[in-house]
């Protein structure tokens, strides 16, 4: 079922941001130049956070022990990357917030993750397809970010790139096996492509903030990642006997804070303790 409107409505995003600002005590505004960087760091940090959360939902419920362990490794990598990205975002913001503050004390409209990563797990094939589509993008993104003009970004990206190269190796392999497995597995994987494809386009859409950060050589230009991504996905799909959809329609809004209905539930669960016991230390 399609969720909340995925259209990009800047006014709503702006309203949401102003509303959110009231929740925090007045603090000095970050300098204008860093606002775009802060946003772009949230886009990657929130994406790894939400995907890590989704993947961790499988712990103890996977089809085989080996898969349970492998998926937990992926989730652990993503959570570790989140700590790095959000810590840097907090530093750039300069408002004395920590990575945990950003993860646990923002509402959905302040989250900047891709819509793809908040999609529900579905069956195991659906989860693997979501992971693969993300990994193929993530890998290209990190390769670009590892060459960042900002050494802090380059360092985080270089470490993450090694982890994600393995994620991609594993999901590529599984997509091929399941696409070219039984009739049932093929059907499930094709259904996953169908369900998720329209959430991939957002990864390559740039707004003014992306453009500014790309122009400064800090993060890669999103549009530049489409071609290599498509090459990876196309090659894997061909081997997996899965058809590449020709639809170019893209849901968008996650990077600007307009999410699907799912994110609210993820945060309600994730943030419960921090919200129920404000100020406690864990």
């Amino acid at each position: 079922m399609p969720s909340l409107p995925d259209m990009n409505t800047p006014e709503v995003a702006e309203l949401a941001r102003m509303q959110g600002a009231h929740a925090h005590p007045p603090v000095p505004a970050p300098d204008a130049g860093e606002q775009a960087l802060f946003e772009c760091l949230l886009r990657i940090g929130d994406s790894t956070l939400v995907l890590g959360h989704r993947v961790s939902e499988w712990c103890g419920h996977s089809p085989a022990l080996e898969e349970d362990i492998a998926l937990a490794n992926v989730a652990l990598d993503l959570i570790g990357q989140t700590q790095n990205w959000l810590a840097l975002a907090a530093e750039v913001e300069g408002q004395d917030r920590s990575a945990d503050d950003l993860a646990y004390l923002r509402d959905a409209w302040d989250f900047r993750n891709l819509l793809l990563v908040e999609r529900p797990n579905g069956d195991f094939g659906h989860t693997l397809m979501r992971q693969f589509l993300f990994d193929a993008w993530h890998h290209e993104f990190l390769k670009g970010a590892a060459a960042s003009t900002d050494p802090r970004v380059a360092e985080i990206a270089a470490k993450a790139a090694k982890e994600v190269a393995y994620h991609l190796e594993r999901t590529s392999d599984l997509i091929v096996r399941l696409g070219d497995g039984t009739a049932e597995s093929h059907r499930r994987m094709a259904a996953a492509v169908e369900a998720l494809w329209s959430y991939t386009g957002e990864m390559f859409l740039a707004d003014a903030k992306d453009a500014e950060i790309a122009a400064r050589g800090i993060l890669p230009d999103p549009a530049s990642l489409r071609e290599p991504w498509l090459a990876t996905v196309g090659a894997v799909f061909a081997e997996a006997t899965l058809a590449l959809p020709d639809s170019a329609f893209a849901h968008k809004g996650g990077k600007q804070g307009i999410h699907t209905e799912h994110l609210g539930y993820i945060l309600a669960e994730m943030q419960f303790l921090q919200r129920a016991y404000p100020g406690a230390s864990w």
Binding site: S56, E57, A72, N73, M270
Partner: peptide, 19 residues
């Protein structure tokens, strides 16, 4: 409790343990 762990670090530790 993995999805409700109160900090990123606690989440990672708990996940590693259950793994």
């Amino acid at each position: 409790w993995i999805t409700r762990a109160p900090t990123l670090e606690r989440k990672a530790i708990l996940l590693a343990k259950v793994q």
